[in-house]
């Protein structure tokens, strides 16, 4: 085990996995309770547009992804605030246009884009040290902001109208949560890739919700679940050479299935008692 840990790529992978789990646990419960899962899917896919342009320009792909996801988050946030049109329609369009831009720019870039697959499906084993530092920064921003604005975010997730009646800056809080979601997605793309981000935002929360019914505890349990899932997936990837992103998600999905199944059986036994 200590031999594995001596590899720098393994250290990076473990660090990024833990930080991604923290981000998931902190922001995931808000995404689930505010029903922003579809928005998250849209945001992560628009990242592909940014990646394509970054390849074409020859700059760091993570920056391209971040620029696109943040822009999309602000656009969706403004659209929601103005209630100009049906929001899911708008998200669907951003989703597809983002991917199309990515495909086009990658097509125009000469040569083979080797990291492309790892951005679509994630590869926690190839995260460079510089990206670990960026991930650390993003994790600090997300957890710091949620800690400071916790009461406000809970207020808008619980009862937005009441928050407005209490003169909370609801529009700013909603936009803030949208931007934090965007930053979290950028963090997670490195671990599980664009296509699988939604799973990491939802599965740990779904497992945690089976055990805890208090928002803070759901957050904490989601973080622990995320770490368990990410590190198991990482090991599976290292030892049996499975794709890391898919391993992480499938272990998470299986764990959720087991938890649900066990709960069902125990509940049935409880109700069967006289």
């Amino acid at each position: 085990m200590s031999a594995i840990l001596s590899y720098e790529f393994m250290q990076n992978a473990i660090l990024v996995g833990i930080m991604a789990s923290i981000v998931c646990g902190v922001i995931g419960p808000f995404i689930v309770t505010r029903r922003m899962v579809f928005i998250s899917g849209g945001l992560s896919h628009t990242a592909f547009g940014g990646l394509g342009i970054a390849y074409w320009l020859g700059i760091r792909p993570l920056f391209g992804a971040m620029a696109f996801v943040l822009t999309a988050a602000v656009l969706i946030g403004r659209q929601e605030e103005k209630r100009l049109s049906q929001n899911d329609l708008f998200i669907g369009i951003l989703w597809a246009v983002g991917v199309a831009i990515g495909i086009l720019f990658i097509h125009m870039t000469p040569g083979y884009a080797p990291d492309l697959m790892s951005f679509l499906f994630g590869n926690i084993l190839t995260v460079p040290r510089a990206d670990v530092l960026i991930t650390l920064l993003l994790t600090l921003i997300v957890t710091g902001a949620v800690t400071i604005y916790y009461n406000g975010f809970v207020a808008i997730a619980l009862d937005e109208e009441y928050a407005r009646a209490r003169r909370l800056p609801v529009a700013a809080l909603k936009m803030g949560l949208m931007i934090l979601t965007a930053l979290s997605i950028v963090t997670l793309i490195q671990v599980v890739g664009i296509l699988l981000v939604i799973a990491l935002l939802t599965i740990p929360v779904a497992i945690a919700s089976e055990f805890a019914r208090n928002f803070r505890r759901i957050m904490l349990l989601s973080i622990l679940c995320g770490i368990l899932i990410c590190l198991s997936g990482l090991m599976a990837s290292y030892f049996i050479e499975f794709p890391s992103g898919a391993s992480i998600i499938l272990i998470g999905g299986a764990l959720l299935g087991v938890v649900k199944g066990v709960k069902r059986v125990t509940n049935r036994r409880k109700t069967a008692l006289p």
Partner: peptide
């Protein structure tokens, strides 16, 4: 303000 109970997120874990 006491809203109609249908108007807020009744599934919120609190």
């Amino acid at each position: 303000y006491v809203p109609q109970s249908a108007r807020f997120n009744r599934t919120f874990p609190i």
